[in-house]
């Protein structure tokens, strides 16, 4: 039983990191992930608490309703990303980052002021589809495995190669006939959908959802996952998300020093591994070593 719920939160971290990684894969620094994460969470929280028909008659929340929430959250987030993506992705580099931060802030302020979102108190008493953390671990694991599979397939797919080409040189990619605007938009929408799906699971897991879940702080945390783990290959963000989420909890035995140690790790990581802990070159070296052995 021990630490299974930590495993769930680590899974959420890895998923959010992948959501930041996808736009980065085509060179776009988008910090909108927490915004879509919040959208997913609100979809789940609102549907499960305000729509009695969904909760069925039984003691626990039916899995079919959870599946419906996942579907709806993916649709809503995907639609928002599709509409916003076109104009926002015209911006590059730091300007795109600023625009996406603005998006997160606008969503946060909206959620604070709208009557249906419960303001700062948020929505509480969200019903549980699973008996304990084991169910969440399984659901998160499946979602993470699917996302990882998608990301690993991207490396071999035309879309993934187009993304890499845009990251290396957008102008050159366009000259070679890659529809750069479309590719970037697909990455942005995929990123939004992953974040929203994570939000649905997180809302049920946390029992409560409020405007603080999607804040600027969360943007920075998710970016730290990718900076720490590395943004060249999908394994990097996954590792970053898992490790950085787990570290403050695993360091509990050291008591008051734990946040200092945690800060040190975040500081030392990028100094020792400027490209992130996991790079394609590093992986190739490990593979070669394994083959030799």
């Amino acid at each position: 039983m021990r630490d299974l719920s930590l495993l769930v939160q680590m899974g959420f971290g890895a998923l959010l990191a992948l959501s930041v990684y996808l736009p980065l894969r085509c060179g776009q620094l988008s910090l909108a992930t927490p915004g879509f994460y919040a959208i997913g969470g609100y979809v789940a929280a609102l549907l499960s608490t305000r729509w009695p028909a969904l909760s069925g008659g039984g003691a626990s929340y039916p899995l079919t309703s959870l599946a419906l929430e996942l579907l709806l959250a993916a649709l809503v987030a995907g639609a928002v990303a599709l509409v916003l993506g076109r104009p926002v992705l015209q911006l590059r580099g730091i300007y795109l980052a600023i625009a996406t931060i603005a998006l997160v802030e606008i969503l946060r302020v909206l959620n604070l002021n709208m009557a249906w979102s419960g303001g700062a108190v948020g929505i509480f008493g969200i019903p549980q589809p699973f008996d304990g953390p084991a169910g969440y671990a399984l659901a998160t694991g499946v979602l993470l495995a699917l996302t990882c599979w998608l990301c690993s397939r991207l490396e071999a797919m035309r879309l993934g190669r187009a993304m890499s080409a845009i990251r290396e040189d957008e102008l050159a990619a366009r000259c070679m006939g890659i529809p750069t605007a479309d590719v970037k938009l697909i990455a942005f929408v995929l990123s939004a959908v992953i974040a929203a799906l994570t939000g649905v699971l997180a809302a049920h897991f946390l029992n409560t959802w409020n405007a603080r879940q999607g804040s600027f702080d969360a943007s920075i945390t998710t970016l730290a996952f990718v900076v720490f783990g590395g943004s060249r290959i999908w394994l990097g963000p996954v590792l970053g998300g898992l490790v950085i989420t787990a570290l403050p909890e695993l360091l509990r035995p050291v008591g008051d020093l734990r946040l200092i140690l945690f800060g040190l790790v975040i500081l030392v990581g990028p100094i020792l591994f400027p490209q992130g802990v996991i790079t394609p070159e590093g992986l190739a070296r490990i593979r070669a070593a394994v083959r030799r052995a």
């Binding site: 671990a137 399984l138 694991g141």
Partner: peptide, 10 residues
Amino acid sequence: ALAGALALAA
């Protein structure tokens, strides 16, 4: 491997 590990833990 990741999916396997998670399933095993669960």
